[in-house]
Nucleic acid binder design. Structure first.
Lengths: 335, 335
DNA sequence: TTGTAAGCGTTATCAA
DNA sequence: TTGATAACGCTTACAA
């Protein structure tokens, strides 16, 4: 039912080997021959069989993108960056999400990668997650986004620095009781949650401010979580005058909590976050913007390089992209 | 370097045919034999070669998801629903985005599907888009989300009804000058943009209200576009007292435009939209919520059925999912 | 520059 | 229930 390379070879009066070479643009093919083959292939509406090609060559021409979430802003934005690069390179993108808290149980990703893809692109899986290490142990070309692991190429922002910038902004405005809305109570090293807390505590220490445990709360990087976390902070005997939220989405929730308590963000309580979500502009939220699409694009390019250069991945670097503080109405000087 | 089915067969003392049958759970395999094969395969850490399997069987075990956007809320949310179903079924998900206005040129999706996937899942590509028809002409199992084409299974909401609900809500509140923020100036039939406009004009007609062209504006389903569209409406000599935006994101932009003009949504101008975006709750936006994840899930299930039943897709139906009006502070009775 | 032919690792048919 | 074996459609030495 399908046209095969043999049909093309026959119609063009050459061998299948020549068809293969001609169609793949390999050198050592006569120009005349090549164009004749191309013409015949087009006429017959020939499409190469990827399965056969993969089996024969050992390359799959596809990579897996492994992510904990698909629908969240950061992840879908990274994904769109990744996709644009892979599509231009003609590489198939296999999307796999790893089981998360709310998800049903699901096969771990590593076994699904073997023999199926040429490389993997991992988005923000915590550095101590066993699933991540199963993936890395496969030894295939890999590049990571939003986390770093020794010896594996990755693209991130400088989370400590971003968080320092955000926190310093509040300190500069005169705030001395500054709340923190983080992810989970304990974050593994080299994750955003860990580093952003580090930047926060460092700046506090440098400013001579105490670290008050009652001003630390956890929003699990969701809007609803951010709202609960802010409510916790507002229920403290002594409220903060400013809050640093580790993500815009948590800040959105926090701002709603403020309004529900009759407080106006930026006037009654200042709030700053990290992300640069489009909605942050709508809500007039001060934030440290990160180039999320670029994270995806650059990580994908790093992966393509590994794929082509067949080089050991340890040559590659950790790339850190710049962030930028965008001051809006949600932060103001302490009155 | 890789363990093959032959190694397993040898180690288990059976033929490759038996290994294949045993591992795939086919009937007519002795229980003892099957478990011995499974044990040996596990010990050898055997992983089947998908390429070989595909070549021999003719099935790829993967489907393509084709979408115009990845990072936008509706699309990423649909995608997450699709992914959850496909992953549970053990089907590989190939993500392809089609070139859009802003994107660079890119191969049309149809040629990339042939021989590569068993089916396609198309998200909200306009019914008159030639790329869509190239895909459909492939004749492979296909299911669509957010658009309908005669004879192709699809999952949508009733866009006319959703839009009627939204518009009627404004009419019921006493509004008589109602603005419309739509997508593009002209939308193909059977698309959300077309049907939502239809519901809007129908309700206006039923209410005996005139259709004022100066109250119709276009936001192209983006936040920024919605802002511009609202600004256009506000620059009209006679402003609307209420606005229906075809998507939450356009409404977000519209609300910002209102604020920039010193107007408060829900007090000075009412606004209602369609979607049920999480941020709509934050912004207190009245909206007709649609079950976006379910759209993806159900469409994926419909595709799986076609895949398994090898049935001609024309048996399948158009499935319409229910929507729900969620009244919030952005709409109020005309004073 | 081109052709020959041996794989690549499964599946599926047919016999046994 | 199991085994032999011929596909499946391409790639890639190796020869010519």
């Amino acid at each position: 039912m399908g046209i095969t390379i043999r049909d093309v070879a026959q119609a063009a009066g050459v061998s299948t080997a020549t068809v293969s070479r001609a169609l793949r643009g390999l050198p050592n093919v006569d120009d005349q021959t090549r164009s004749r083959v191309q013409k015949v292939a087009a006429e017959l509406d020939y499409v190469i069989s990827p399965s056969a090609s993969r089996l024969a060559s050992g390359r799959t021409g596809s990579v897996a993108v492994i992510t904990p979430y698909i629908a969240r802003w950061f992840f879908s934005t990274v994904l769109s960056g990744v996709e644009s690069v892979l599509a231009s390179a003609g590489i198939d993108l296999l999307l796999m999400s790893v089981s998360n808290a709310s998800g049903q149980l699901r096969l771990p990703p590593a076994p699904r990668l073997r023999r199926r893809v040429d490389g993997a692109l991992v988005i923000a899986i915590p550095a101590d997650d066993p699933q991540l290490h199963e993936i890395l142990e496969l030894g295939m070309p890999t590049s990571m986004i939003g986390v770093s692991v020794e010896g594996v190429p990755s693209v991130t922002i400088d989370d400590i620095q971003a968080s320092r910038t955000a926190t310093q902004h509040l300190v500069n405005l005169g705030h001395r009781r500054i709340g923190l809305i983080g992810g989970a109570p304990v974050s593994p090293p080299f994750t955003a949650g860990h580093d952003r807390r580090r930047g926060f505590t460092d700046v506090l220490a440098e400013a001579g401010l105490p670290l008050d445990p009652s001003l630390e709360s956890h929003g699990y990087f969701t809007i609803a979580g951010g709202e609960r976390a802010m409510t916790d902070l507002l229920n403290q005997p002594s409220r903060p005058t400013a809050v640093f939220a580790m993500s815009d989405e948590m800040a959105f929730g926090a701002m709603r909590s403020m309004r529900n308590h009759g407080l106006q963000p930026g006037r009654d309580i200042s709030i700053v976050a990290i992300d640069g979500h489009e909605v942050a502009e709508l809500l007039d939220l001060t934030t440290v913007a990160q180039p999320v699409q670029d994270l995806g694009r650059i990580a994908a390019e790093a992966l393509l390089q590994q794929l082509h250069s067949r080089s050991d991945r340890s040559h590659q670097l950790v790339q850190r992209l710049a962030t930028q503080l965008i001051v809006r109405g949600s932060t103001s000087a302490l009155r």
